[in-house]
Design a binder for these strands. Structure first.
Length: 911
DNA sequence: GAGCACTGC
């Protein structure tokens, strides 16, 4: 098959659809078509005695085939006709949350409280606690919390608000013998756990006594816990079964300034909750100086400001202060970004004269600044970064240097430029590099060397390098936005917000006075926004809308319009559309959960991955679907040490072993890892294949969590069985049914067209399908970076797509053939003789899936899914090394095969 | 031919 030959303008095809018209060789894709889309040409479906044949051309050499074995098809249809399995769905959900928010809150045990506060452990930490700025505001905070419903506490990092305020509230109520149960949220797991541990220690107790924490996979809360730290996510999930937060007297929300989706949404719920619970006390804690956004959201809030900082003084330099100290350098000439200079700062003077007049600086400095101001926002001058690091190294006393750049490429460039200097101990810090696991970045550098850590935003909050004295700050951040046109998430480099700058500044001077070397001018600083755009207005909202529906709050559009920063209505609508398409929301009212939606809301993954799990059960490939869902729900376990890309790629290829599915590769990586008996074996396996042990541990836990969630939903042990026949065909069918319409027609070199959206897409260079040609692939993740990349893809067959596509529009061509529009860009011509068979099969399959998904499998559905898998097995390569070879029926037997098809399994040219 | 960062009863 020649895919490019099929890419003719399909308007051209319309009159008569004469045979041969399609054979325009290498016809270019239409440009500037009214819809802005390139159209795939029609593909025809012809019945043969033994099945269907989809063909693009009269010449069979060039045909596109979907082989559907007629006999298998007939066999498969029988079990699909069976009535739905009996058995009621279980509506209730087992409450297993231990002591967390269960039962009415009681007062603290007076004797225990007395013993605690007079104990040695408590006394040990008291002096240090008293020195914290927050401690000095104790009376004011307690009084504010006591007198009003909402208190907003403002205090910079390190003032002690996070650890102290929950204790103040607790002690105040305990002394008075009042009921007390404090829930304190954190945006990150690690902070919830470590803060709880710290506070428990300050109180002289163990975790789970007075103080506990609850994060996903970990729970130290007991019946005696009065102060519980948890992630916001945990609390949101809790509210699905306990919408009034019964059992909590105080809710403390920390880091509200970070404006992450969970916290913003929780604040929305809190505001609604306050109308229903006048006994609930809410404390919001923020590191921002400007509380206006929160004050207009909670007009009743009392504000308490905690003054003072604990950091050492920090020298602050702008670019205009630094440039005169550097050797004169020529201005770089970056290529212009294809997206335009989206993040350009406004009001920054571009001419040297104005700069000279305003700054009274040297002429060459003014000119250099003017040149610098003209650079696009997404360009980072890595030569300048390296030059400043060298300058600091040469001119300043000892002390580690922390360098902030936006991403991988800049880290690599800066490291490369600095490497020549033997007196530097250089470390790269990026979430996809294994270095986060290397202790060396936290250790003192070798004698005579200065430590330099070149990092992304990772070192801004998540990872703390204690001994940093100098921060060299490029002032840029890479973050995701939603492309409003394509509704695809996009990764872009922009100038950061001044709030980020303060956070980076704070990373210096933790151990002694430090310095902040900013690689932007005071003009640029003045033009920066104060705060980054809240995450809610730049994220896909599918999961959030499902959450709204699960909480029974009504239509997501008006509910989310109540948020502090309401998201664009088009984005909410797209999310609701997706949930309706998935079958999670009622198609009519677009707000109430369907039975399937109720199940998906209870699984702790993206609803699409939840459906993948349930379909995995239905298609009898639950174990692999579980791994794939857990893998796609975590970050990728594949890591790459800086500069070892070829080695890492080779290792990945060895593991991939020719599979045409990244999902199978993911499953294989996990399965191989898990098959190693012990920690050391698993570690060495990870080292060999450039995998992150830590991420695989997370996948493992997530997998267990999802597995037990499914077990509860299906009332039986899902999975745990031997790998079934045709596992790859089963998995790809489940993927296709769950991920639709995320299917792309890949023409060549991994480039193609997404059927759902008509957008041009490319398989990511890290994908096994990076150079795929003439294939249909199903995908979960898509992101616009330097191109619109599909991150993980699996090849599916045209036959699968023909049967699984949920809506086909049927029309008749002038020549009397039926035309099925599987998607706007994929039309299939079907001969009249085959049409009824195709449509009947589709209907039966859809009915079968619809009535069976989310139910435990029984004999009938097992037979049905086995038949389905057998039907597609000829088109899908056997990727799992399963027992296809011993099949009593060769997979291709009876199937119509194109004459040029080679070998078993997927024939060349078979979609 | 490429990888901001988080998170879930």
């Amino acid at each position: 098959m020649r895919a490019e030959a099929r890419l003719g303008a399909h308007e051209q095809r319309a009159p008569g659809l004469q045979p041969g018209v399609a054979q325009v060789p290498h016809a270019p894709a239409p440009r500037g078509a009214a819809s802005g889309r390139a159209a795939l040409d029609d593909v025809r479906c012809r019945a043969t005695r033994k099945g269907f044949c989809l063909e693009g051309f009269e010449d069979e050499e060039d045909a596109v085939y979907a082989s559907l074995d007629g006999a298998l098809l007939k066999r498969a249809r029988e079990p699909w006709r069976r009535p739905p399995p009996r058995g009621r769905r279980r509506e209730g959900w087992a409450q297993r949350s231990g002591g967390f928010l269960s039962g009415a809150p009681g007062p603290a045990d007076a004797a225990a409280f007395e013993a605690e506060t007079s104990g040695r452990g408590y006394a040990t930490f008291l002096p240090a606690r008293r020195r914290l700025p927050a401690f000095k505001m104790r009376e004011a905070i307690v009084a504010a919390v006591r007198s009003g419903a909402v208190t907003l506490v403002l205090g910079a990092t390190g003032c002690g608000k996070t650890t102290q305020i929950p204790q103040f509230v607790y002690e105040d109520c305990a002394r008075r013998g009042e009921a007390i149960a404090v829930v304190a949220t954190q945006p990150r797991r690690i902070s919830a756990a470590s803060v709880a541990e710290r506070v428990a220690r300050e109180r002289g107790g163990a975790l789970g006594d007075t103080v506990g924490f609850k994060i996903r996979f970990e729970d130290s809360v007991t019946a005696s816990s009065k102060v519980v730290f948890c992630t916001v996510g945990v609390l949101l999930k809790t509210m699905q079964s306990n919408p009034l937060l019964a059992g909590a007297t105080h809710v403390i929300v920390d880091e509200v300034h970070e404006r992450d989706v969970h916290t913003d949404f929780f604040l929305l719920l809190v505001r609604r909750l306050l109308a229903k619970r006048n006994d609930l006390k809410v404390v919001l804690m923020s590191a921002t100086v400007d509380p206006s956004a929160f004050l207009s959201y909670f007009p009743e809030a009392a504000v308490v400001e905690i003054p003072g900082k604990t950091n050492y003084p920090i020298e602050e330099h702008y670019l205009e202060d630094i440039l005169p100290q550097l050797r004169p350098r020529s201005s770089p000439r970056p290529r212009r970004s294809p997206f335009g200079d989206a993040g350009a700062l406004e009001g920054v003077p571009g001419d040297a004269e104005t700069i000279f007049a305003r700054l009274k600086c040297a002429r060459p400095t003014a000119q250099a600044l003017a040149d610098f101001h003209a650079l696009p926002a997404d360009f980072v001058d890595v030569d300048l970064v390296a030059a400043v690091v060298e300058h600091v190294h040469a001119s300043q006393e000892d002390g580690a240097i922390l360098v902030f750049v936006p991403g991988w490429a800049e880290i690599a460039d800066v490291v490369k430029r600095l490497e020549r200097d033997r007196s530097l101990a250089i470390h790269a810090l990026h979430s996809r590099m294994p270095s986060a696991e290397q202790r060396a970045i936290f250790d003192a550098p070798p004698p005579g060397k200065r430590k330099v850590v070149v990092s992304t935003v990772l070192a801004e909050t998540s990872i703390t390098v204690e001994d940093v004295v100098h921060v060299v700050d490029a002032g840029k951040a890479r973050s995701t936005f939603l492309n409003k046109q394509s509704l695809v998430s996009a990764l872009r480099t922009t100038w950061y917000a001044t709030a980020n700058g303060l956070q980076r500044r704070g990373r210096a001077g933790r151990v002694r006075p430090g310095a902040w070397w900013r690689l932007y001018s005071s003009f640029q600083h003045a033009a920066m926004v104060d705060y980054a755009e809240p995450e809610m207005v730049r994220s896909p909202l599918d999961e959030l809308c499902l959450e709204v529906a699960a909480l029974g709050l009504g239509a997501p559009e008006p509910v989310l319009a109540e948020a502090i920063s309401p998201p664009d209505e088009a984005i909410v609508r797209a999310a609701v559309d997706g949930l309706v398409r998935l079958g999670a929301l009622d198609a009519e009212d677009r707000m109430s959960l369907s039975p399937l939606g109720r199940q998906l809301a209870r699984l702790h993954v993206h609803p699409v991955l939840g459906k993948l799990l349930l379909l995995g059960e239905l298609f009898d490939c639950f174990d692999v679907a579980l791994t794939v869902a857990a893998g796609l729900g975590s970050k990728s376990p594949f890591v790459c040490p800086l500069g070892k890309e070829p080695l890492a790629n080779a290792a990945k290829a060895r593991l991939a072993d020719g599979t045409d599915s990244d999902h199978v590769l993911l499953e294989r990586a996990y399965a191989e890892w898990r098959a190693r008996p012990g920690y050391r074996d698993r570690r060495s396996f990870c080292d060999r294949f450039f995998l992150s042990h830590q991420t695989l541990e997370y996948v493992d836990q997530l997998r267990r969590d999802l597995g037990s969630g499914c077990r509860d939903l299906l009332k039986r042990d899902a999975g745990g069985r031997a790998r079934p026949r045709h596992a790859a065909a089963r998995l790809s069918s489940a993927l296709l049914a769950a991920l639709w319409p995320n299917v792309a027609a890949v023409r060549k070199q991994g480039k193609g067209l997404a059927l759902g959206s008509g957008l041009k897409v490319v398989c990511h260079p890290g994908s096994v399908n990076r150079s795929a040609a003439d294939r249909l692939v199903v995908f979960y993740d898509v992101q616009e970076t330097s191109d619109r990349y599909l991150y993980d893809t699996s090849v599916v067959s045209l036959a699968q797509v023909l049967l699984f596509a949920p809506d086909v529009a049927q029309s008749t061509t002038n020549s009397g053939r039926a035309k099925l529009a599987v998607a706007p860009d994929l039309q299939v011509l079907v001969d009249a003789a085959a049409l009824d068979d195709v449509l009947a099969t589709r209907d039966l399959l859809q009915a079968f899936v619809q009535r069976s998904v989310g139910r435990p499998t029984d004999d009938a559905s097992a037979r049905a899914s086995a038949a389905l898998a057998a039907l597609f097995s000829a088109d899908v390569s056997a990727d799992f090394g399963d027992d296809d070879e011993e099949e009593e029926r060769p997979p291709t037997k009876g199937a119509y095969r194109p004459p040029h098809s080679r070998g078993r399994g997927r024939g060349d040219g078979a979609w």
